[in-house]
Write a protein that binds this DNA or RNA. Structure first.
Lengths: 303, 303
DNA sequence: TTTTGCGATACCGTTCGGGTATCATCTGCG
DNA sequence: CGCAGATGATACCCGAACGGTATCGCAAAA
């Protein structure tokens, strides 16, 4: 109810003439005079000195003009900022992912999103599947990248990548140093470093299912909380581990990565968001994701 | 037309409840809902997430809330500031005065004004009568303190002080060192250091009229632009000068001040402002001045 | 499933803002 | 000194917008 008056006041102050200001504002002069008078009454001070033929700003008017310009400017920018955030062009998007996703196409996907929405603050954090599930349910995050997937209700889920499994072996192991191909069953007696099986489905399920398809169940199992720990255990000779191929692309002292023959059902990375999370940032992210997977996530190799 | 909406929005955002916010705003809930909806449409973004039972701010809403609070605060302070200036409680008052006024009651008067209106910026400058006249006409200053007065049209004029004249003599002059009273006519042969006679009336007029009343006209006259220069000329022995008594209260090496017998019509300090200058600061200043002169400008002696 | 609480929608009356006509005042010119 | 033109203020009218009451729709809780 008073903002229009600020604009009116600015126009009159700049034109120093009610008639011209009214023309500029596309209105008649009398209502403009009335609005200015009302503004002056509200403020309780004269803003214009009308004693001469050419109207002039009073000192109060001079100061109020500065303030009014600033206010109009700020209001406008507040509108624009809110609009931008509302369209997902600014603000914050919270993404969490399993640690092993950092080697695959995820960084490329995130770069792509960033290039489309450079003003969005990305909050990135690594979590295991259990933490992802909790954070997603409690809306602490918008996007979860799980391996192989989260299986809770009311999630929007998109497959990011499917990749084969590989062996991670101590590099002084005879199996690692020999040139012949490796098959899984011959490792039945070795210690398999696995991950927690909860919540289902877990990466451990992928590995155990792979073993099952190859006709055996690992006899000795050790457990690690995440793939980094698992590889560390391998490097110090605790046993061997099975990892997604993308993980094998980083070299790690004491660890050798080898493919294996036989059945290899692979493992998947899945991107989730709550179905009821209609935040434009999330929708935009899935748009970028859709284009990304469609044009082939050749980014698998990248980085 | 949009500011009311900001206040509505802030209320709803703070209450997180349309009904309570409406109660707080002393209005019904439906128009409030409509105003918020209109605001969201204007902005082009949702400000509230109404999907759950408890409404929540969206990210755009969070940011807009900050901005809205800031805007309301700024608007309010702009109103208050303009009002204060409009009442003469802040802003700037431009005062100019003849140099010789600095020793009389003027500083006390200004202190009194300052204590009543501590937030008013005082712009103080020294000018001779000619400059005062020009500045007042061109509205470069609000208040002029002239000696003895300005005689131009449309001025509000108030006598600040009337004081006797005194002699300023070189301190090695026999007249300065003798104990007997001094009369003006015996100085007829001395050089009188005077001031410019334009614009009329000038302090030089006061001095010459005083001489005339004592029955003579100074035979030798020297001219100085201001009283400081005049006293300097006296101190280096150019001649003698006649000054307002208040000036005699500062001691100056090489200069002795002496009263004289015979006629002493004295000299005045007059405070002027343009009649058409209705600025509250000027009116307030004259209010202070009125009280000041009424309760006796005992400040003559002060300082 | 029913009930309750809350926000949205429909509809109506009043108010306020804007338009046209006119007045009052000041300025400049003859 | 008086008259004409310009400019802001005032008077009056109309339409749009805002607020109020009644009611709906939906979702969470019982």
């Amino acid at each position: 109810m008073e903002l229009k008056r600020l604009k009116y006041f600015i126009a009159v102050a700049e034109e120093r003439h009610f008639g011209r200001a009214a023309a500029r504002l596309d209105m008649a002069q009398p209502p403009l005079s009335r609005q200015i008078a009302a503004l002056e009454k509200d403020i309780g001070a004269q803003l214009f000195d009308r004693s001469r033929s050419q109207i002039r700003l009073t000192q109060a008017g001079e100061v109020f003009l500065e303030r009014a310009r600033d206010l109009v400017e700020r209001l406008d920018s507040a509108y624009r900022e809110a609009r931008l955030i509302g369209q997902g062009g600014a603000g914050r998007l919270r993404i969490a992912f399993v640690g092993s996703a950092t080697h695959g196409p995820l960084p490329t996907l995130i770069k792509s999103y960033r290039s489309h929405y450079p003003d969005v603050d990305l909050s990135l954090s690594a979590m295991n599947n259990a933490e992802l599930e909790r954070a997603l349910v409690q809306q602490d995050i918008d996007i979860a990248v799980a391996r192989p997937a989260l299986k809770i209700e009311d999630l929007r889920s998109v497959l990011l990548i499917e990749e084969p499994l590989m062996l991670a072996l101590p590099d002084n192991s005879p199996i690692a140093t020999r040139s012949a191909a490796v098959s899984l069953p011959e490792l039945e007696g070795e210690t398999f470093v696995l991950y927690p099986r909860r919540p289902r489905p877990s990466f451990a399920d992928d590995v155990l299912q792979c073993c099952a398809l190859n006709g055996f169940t690992p006899r000795n199992q050790a457990f690690a909380q995440d793939y980094q720990t698992a590889i560390s255990l391998v490097s110090v000779g605790v046993g061997l581990s099975v990892v997604p191929r993308s993980v094998s692309q980083v070299s790690r002292p004491g660890v050798a990565f080898r493919p294996f023959t036989g059945e290899n059902p692979g493992t998947r990375l899945t991107i989730h968001a709550r179905l009821d999370n209609r935040r434009p940032h999330v929708l935009n992210f899935f748009d970028v994701l859709r284009r990304f997977t469609r044009q082939g996530p050749a980014g698998t190799a990248a980085r």
